[in-house]
Design a protein around this nucleic acid. Sequence first.
DNA 1: GTGAAAGCGCTAACAC
DNA 2: GTGTTAGCGCTTTCAC
Lengths: 348, 348
Amino acid sequence: MPSTIKDVAARAGVSLATVSRYINGTGKLRPATAERVNAAIAELGFRPNAVGRSLSTSHTKSLGVVIPSLSNPVFSDAVSGINEAARAEGYRLMFTSTEYNRAEEVEAVSSLLEYRVDGLILTVADAEEAPALDLLEAAGVPYTLLYNQSGRSARPAVTIDNVAAGREVAQHLLALGHQRLGMVSGSFSASDRAMARRDGFTAEIVARGFPAPRVLEVDFVNSEVEEALVLLMRDRDTAPTALFCSNDLLAISVIGALERIGLNVPEDVSVLGFDGIAIGTHLHPTLTTVVQPSRDMGQTATRQLLACLQGGSDPDTMILPYRLQIGESVGPAAKPSPTGPSELNQTK
Amino acid sequence: MPSTIKDVAARAGVSLATVSRYINGTGKLRPATAERVNAAIAELGFRPNAVGRSLSTSHTKSLGVVIPSLSNPVFSDAVSGINEAARAEGYRLMFTSTEYNRAEEVEAVSSLLEYRVDGLILTVADAEEAPALDLLEAAGVPYTLLYNQSGRSARPAVTIDNVAAGREVAQHLLALGHQRLGMVSGSFSASDRAMARRDGFTAEIVARGFPAPRVLEVDFVNSEVEEALVLLMRDRDTAPTALFCSNDLLAISVIGALERIGLNVPEDVSVLGFDGIAIGTHLHPTLTTVVQPSRDMGQTATRQLLACLQGGSDPDTMILPYRLQIGESVGPAAKPSPTGPSELNQTK
DNA sequence: GTGAAAGCGCTAACAC
DNA sequence: GTGTTAGCGCTTTCAC
């Protein structure tokens, strides 16, 4: 139904090739010709068909984006950055969220490959074990990982040093006098970065001669978080005095659950998050967290990928800086109460 | 570089048409033939080129999505819903966020039109005055608005009744004894729904014989919010005792600013938000807000649009239910303090 | 400076 | 059942 280059050519009394040249600015047109073409285009409301062009040029000027979820601001911020950087270079985004479903990863990538995106940016569950990435490599389509901890597999990624961040979190907590530390994480199998944070955290604690942290792996459902926490915190004399959460959303859940079971943050337990989502500074207590430059990471990944598309080289891994942001949710270790441990769940 | 149908045909010793039929399941193949084709596809790692198919069929199985920003959970939730519903029907998403920039709206739509998306879902600044939509209509590409208050222009939309919601907010506040009400909104020119909420809010208040609310229109920058609030709240005897914010993100800013200038929520001022973003229930005080079924709205819009694509009919407007959710950020009107108005900014 | 024509990968008549 | 062929809308040699 929309008009084609052919219609424009007929109307302007020139050939297809001339119209094409006019549109793409390739080759010089006599001013008079250009004017006639221009007029024809305007009169017809002609809009070049990118599908035809893509078939002909074998590139689509579009990028695939695959992320686990949009509900976490960490990802939506990154996508904002991707969007901005892509648009600046005239690229469109084909977007998919997998909802943390690994099977979706390969389905999404397959589909994006059929659409012949020029490159992709993605966050997968586990960069070491990702059929979706193998697919991409087999297809020879450039991509760059975002957030993923691409360990020994050496896959191109824009990320932070999650292990170092985990260590720094441990140091911070230890420096505040906490001796019994714990970690609460979402499913490790859905997040290689959570694993890396745990590894750094644990390593540092052990290296300093403290007992390895108790690690709670929870399915991200509120009720389950609360249940698990009741168990973990039952005996205040042995329970952790500080909890490192693998991400801010989880930290927020944890703080809520803790308060519901009668524990105050940070007086009774300190809670530290990860990601640095904007809302963290508006909470009470404000979140202490490791902030990742999400938007910037998205932009960087995109620019890098785009550079490779023009240049031909393959993307490299880039480690961006993180920053420990001090909030109110972490305090100094409480001195053991002289009157003995306080009771939990006094409501009953 | 990737293999084509032709390669597969050659390898399987059949014609292009046969391979095409196999892929699309159109027409019957002799089992033996099907097997050979299947083997050839596997051996070659063949993946059909959607660009070629689109050119041939003149549909792309892709939907355009244009929203103002991903930073507001209201939009990222909607996009999640869109993503889910689209994927269920085998459609891909071409995504753009305009960052509340109206010029971007038409640029995004133009570009999406070039890519020949089969339909679009979008939230524009103002549905009454949107060149981007005129473009779409001229092109005859089906679309449906999301969140927009498509007033007399009768453009197809999936939304809630923002006017009624505004009225209900007013009733709620009035019922709690508040007599001087205020509203804080982002730029009205960037949000027809904010206008509608204000209109309903104001109309109800005036209809009940109370003075029209003071309306603050702020550019969404924290410092500006605080400044404006200082002015508005200077004289506690005449200042509003309850503030209706046009969205939750703004409400959160407002609560923060209020506390910074020494006013407690809800003791000194009640604050009511709009949208029902998930984080609202984790704040202190928890947000009282009008919740929109964002994810559901995204899904509904998508399903409706998709139905039209198959059916041929044009999308209709659907008004979904909203729900006033009571939180702690709104309390009963404070009795005038017997000792006179409290001082502001006592910190200095 | 401009035109003619081949071809990008696929689908859909239309034959056989 | 399966093959042939003509496009879909565009870009791009290669002539002129």
